[in-house]
Design a binder for these strands. Sequence first.
DNA 1: CAACGGACCTGCCTGC
DNA 2: TGCAGGCAGGTCCGTT
Length: 271
Amino acid sequence: MPELPEVETTRRGISPHLTGRRVVRVDVREPRLRWPVPTELPRVLAGQAIEAVARRGKYLLLRTRGGTLILHLGMSGSLQVVPAAAGPGPHDHVDVVLEGGQALRLTDPRRFGCLLWTPGDPLRHPLLAGLGPEPFDTAFTGAYLYGQTRGRRAPVKALLMDSHVVAGVGNIYANESLFLAGIHPGRPAGRIGLARYGRLAGAVRAVLEKAIRAGGTTLRDFVGVDGQPGYFAQHLRVYEREGKPCEVCGHSLHRRVIGQRASYFCPRCQR
DNA sequence: CAACGGACCTGCCTGC
DNA sequence: TGCAGGCAGGTCCGTT
């Protein structure tokens, strides 16, 4: 489900409910996520005030004085702020109960998400330390991508989805960005020039920015904090549009598995 | 080192 | 109607 725009939508949604609030307790109903929820989490988080809700790539960071809660939504996770008394559904694995009667509730049917605790600098945590630049960071440029991809034979789409190259770009937005930049997703990354990478960096930012403004993409089950879907799905130009006409040239869009992931593109516009 | 396949899970849809 | 198979927004890890 969630790529950078969905995580950012979630961050903006939960932040006003969490910032400055104290955690009363943590209810872990199902600790078996991607990694087990640390057994000490309820103990260390209880009593802490949440000072800020930040995002790095697809990770959410709930900062407190004593440490940081690191949260990833995996493929199917979502967060909602609910009345703490509301009965949990079957996949509501964790509640962070806040003073004032509300709770931050993690729902994740596939359990690919994670919830971890670090007492130190979260950006030095093993999961975050190796992340590439944020797409909106000034370090993310065509020259950066060009430098990262010299000698690489992997398809450009695989590199674009590699969080160590750039953080937060998943399958939907990689497809959309490559379409906007006119680059074929299967092209070896090392065989793309500086100018085209400049266009790609701009396309990534443009697509993500527009998606954030639309509240993310809801395909099947993504919901924002108030349960509302995102509206970017109606702006998708290639994703899950196999056989439909390209909006630019009218050619039938193709689907092909590239780097183990479904890839959608216009064979005429993208080279 | 880069590249690839497998692994972790559930739900939903399709086709026989 | 039932069931097997395929597919899904992520990403780490082990093997070539």
